[in-house]
Simulated assay, not measured.
Amino acid sequence: MNTEDILAKLVSFPVLGGESNLSIIHWIREYIESFGFSCTLVPNAENTKASLHCRIGPSEDGGIILSGHTDVVPVKGQDWDTDPFVLTDKGDGKLYGRGACDMKGFLACCLNMLPELVKANLKKPIYFAFSYDEEIGCLSAPELIRHLQNHYPETPKYAIIGEPSLLQPIIGHKGICLYTTRVNGSAGHSSRIKQEVSAIHEAARLVLWLESKMNDLVAFGNTDKRFSPPHSSLHTGIIQGGIAPNVIADKAYFSWDARMIPDDNLEEVVSAFKQHCKTRIQELKPTFPDFKIETEEIHPPVTPYDSKADSDVVKLMSKINSNTNIGTVAYASEAGQYNEAGLQSIICGPGSIKQAHRANEFIAKQELKNYELFLSNLITLFSSEDVMLEL
């Protein structure tokens, strides 16, 4: 099988974030083990999902992890020209399918390197680490990282996270956390708006508070020009409530996210929001004693990622990658979690993030070829005698 064949097989598994990934992870394990390498699965508590890791090469400190995720985002409601779970070649130099870019193209390139890895005389190990539920909050990576670090006697040093970056080395991204805030007000005739507490009106005020808080952070100088936008963002994407225009809404909710630059403190922002909510509750309870505002964290925060331009992992990348133009991205990934665990991490993968999560997602064939060369250069470097001194 070549990279395109492998990618076609991976795309055929319609594993969405939050769903069982056992079908795709078992296929990947069997494929890796067919080349004589042993894999270890890291299941969830219910044994409905699993991450995978394996080591290729000697038990030596200073190895590198190639990290990717096996889940994809939904296709429901998107206007696809082809079956999203059948890799399609339209003859335009692109391969279409859900996950072709984000990030099964990376996985396919890694798996296609197995014949070369069989022949290689690696002086430092290369690890595969493939997770689940990345698309709904990078949920499984922390446990996968801990398991990998505890499983092997040696200590890996680097991690390449293969998110689509057009092979540009990425050394920073924002953190993210998602929340739902629910408001419980009092129902009544709309003519009594001053005697009741509208959940919709209060929800709207809270949304505006979040926007004001975002603007305050900018006004206070909390900016980082490496990112676009160059500041933390607080955004409300869903708001619902009420049953009719002439009925005061007794219930409303809104869902929002916080995307934080590395130097901003998410806990401080959320704490300030919750304190403001407490103040509003105290002010409105005399009008309606059962008035409530409750905020739920949808999933644990995804750690911001911030590396240095002169770090060893950037120097390593310069030896194997012709693209040395380092940058940052606004999207979140597992890179911050690897970095937090003590591994020098960097994002570098095939394909463009512009194609991710949309209808007719594709990856250019040339991008796959470019990444195959990138990985081949990595294998050559890790097979050289000089690598023991360089890394």
Rank of each mutant, 00 (worst) to 15 (best):
S307T: 14
K94S: 10
I353A: 12
E211I: 10
A359Y: 02
Q366V: 12
P262H: 09
T279Y: 14
E163L: 04
G336L: 05
S333E: 02
H151E: 12
R259Y: 01
S191G: 13
S38V: 15
F374P: 06
K90R: 14
Q149Y: 10
V197K: 01
S191V: 10
Y132P: 00
I261A: 01
L391G: 01
C39Q: 11
V218E: 12
M388R: 13
L368G: 01
N323V: 11
H147G: 03
R29E: 14
L217N: 09
G99I: 09
R192I: 08
V329H: 04
L148C: 09
C109N: 07
A187W: 02
N325G: 01
C109Y: 02
P229R: 01
K354C: 05
G68Q: 06
P230K: 03
P230W: 05
I281L: 06
P43E: 01
S198G: 00
Q355W: 11
S34G: 09
E283W: 09
N222F: 05
N184A: 13
K319R: 15
Y31M: 04
L87V: 04
R55G: 09
G185C: 11
I25K: 06
L373S: 11
M388C: 11
I6G: 05
D83Q: 09
D306N: 14
I363H: 03
S140D: 14
R205Y: 07
L178Y: 15
S228V: 10
I24C: 09
G162E: 05
G97C: 12
A335C: 08
K319M: 14
T328A: 12
L52A: 05
M113D: 03
A203Q: 05
L381V: 04
E143P: 10
I320V: 15
I65M: 07
M103N: 08
A330L: 09
A219L: 14
A187I: 08
N215F: 09
N377W: 07
S212Y: 11
N150I: 01
L206V: 08
Y132G: 00
G17N: 08
